[in-house]
Design a protein around this nucleic acid. Sequence first.
DNA 1: ACAAAAGTGTTTTTTATACACCCATGC
DNA 2: GCATGGGTGTATAAAAAACACTTTTGT
Lengths: 255, 255
Amino acid sequence: MEPCGGWDKSDPTALKASVTPRDRLADFKVGVDNAIFSVDVAENRVLVLLVQRRREPAIGQWSLPGTLVRRGESLEDAAYRVLAEKIRVQQLYLEQLYTFGGPGRDPREAPESFGVRYLSVSYFALVQHEAVQLMVEETEDIAWYPLDRVPKLAFDHNEIVEYGYRRLRNKLEYSPVAFEVLPETFTLNELYQLYTAVLGENFSDYSNFRSKLLKLGILSDTGIKVSRGAGRPASLYRFDYEAFEPLQDKPMVFI
Amino acid sequence: MEPCGGWDKSDPTALKASVTPRDRLADFKVGVDNAIFSVDVAENRVLVLLVQRRREPAIGQWSLPGTLVRRGESLEDAAYRVLAEKIRVQQLYLEQLYTFGGPGRDPREAPESFGVRYLSVSYFALVQHEAVQLMVEETEDIAWYPLDRVPKLAFDHNEIVEYGYRRLRNKLEYSPVAFEVLPETFTLNELYQLYTAVLGENFSDYSNFRSKLLKLGILSDTGIKVSRGAGRPASLYRFDYEAFEPLQDKPMVFI
DNA sequence: ACAAAAGTGTTTTTTATACACCCATGC
DNA sequence: GCATGGGTGTATAAAAAACACTTTTGT
């Protein structure tokens, strides 16, 4: 992400360190923070899941749901665990986002201290908004926030949200994530709404979106018609995993 | 720049729980492994920098240059430090790649080591091959390997190389990394060779590549001609950072 | 002169964009 | 009937891909 110019950062103490390297190594606790997104199609907006911290540090502040990694637990397992603690959902997409791991924000992590370091591996998740059930406890607030109304979060979680949203837009354009988060059958308009909510109103007009997606040949018409209020009933489509398979390594654009 | 986790760092309620979560947290050593790529334009191939391990575990096996993170050292600093220990180079591009952190990925995680986990934050780097000076010590082998001849590496490093190469191709297509790794002035053919080596012979023909890049308006002709052996002398171009700036957030394709 | 590399232009095909218009339903 | 959302087609512009051709050098 950031190009780097001069790099003469060689540590003068490196020589000394090589004598007793073990003692100078940092000890880490590793945390996982999830940027969980969903799309509220009705309101045409993207939401992110926040929890209110009920412990120090940053008690009372909103933050991303996170946890420390336990013995024998993989990073991804930890991510799934926090997720399961906060929401119940059938379908979801999850992938690693970025790792934030520097010292220096916390005075207790001063270079010569013996305190442990805390590293955060962030994960990006996308869930189907309508199907999510929040696991609200009395002691903890948990809520969906529209992206444009996210408050100041604890730590640097605002940055993680930003980063995650960028990833969301890229994923929508270049991968079939949308189908991970749609019901098994859906109308093309529902798909279009999803894209519109994330990418903005002007990303493409509906009829061009239709033809482009249908031409890809990865959607199959179930033939079943469904009526959403007034107007002509729409066809229900299904994502065709078999047809997608051979395309999966090739770059593709879902605009 | 580095957020800490959203998890708590000292949990008083945890201790009175029947299963004490604090004790069940994993303790980590965090390592940084660099996938350092360069392009040998003359031989038309992509190279990755490997070192032969001098210490346990996996002694004698080839691996990516890596190190454990020290107290007070950021992840990126650690990445720059290993880099500086292995090579000397003026220009480079470096960014975080992925974090591998499953239990059991490092043999040092044996039971008798009291449950310490080894986590690897990998970094992707691209350097100018001609300008690199390898820091060869008597005790350590260090070498450039063509991608198609990379041996079985220690740990999960083959996977990291794969992942890094994928990143390299994407970066070349959608960002101006190439210019980070080219001399300040270069011929369009040198640029083309770089792209060809990474993306393969058939990614575009030379004349189309030329017109496309020139039409972007981010290269300025210095007017200086230079003769590479036989044939008509080529113009030296320079990457125009000012002209690129307004385009930098927009998606762009360098194919 | 001629091979080799640089550089220009033209033609064809494909893709993107805008938008006009028909279709099927609820009220 | 007519408003509403679903769906098809067409006309134009832009971009990608293929390739023929000219220019300038070394030998």
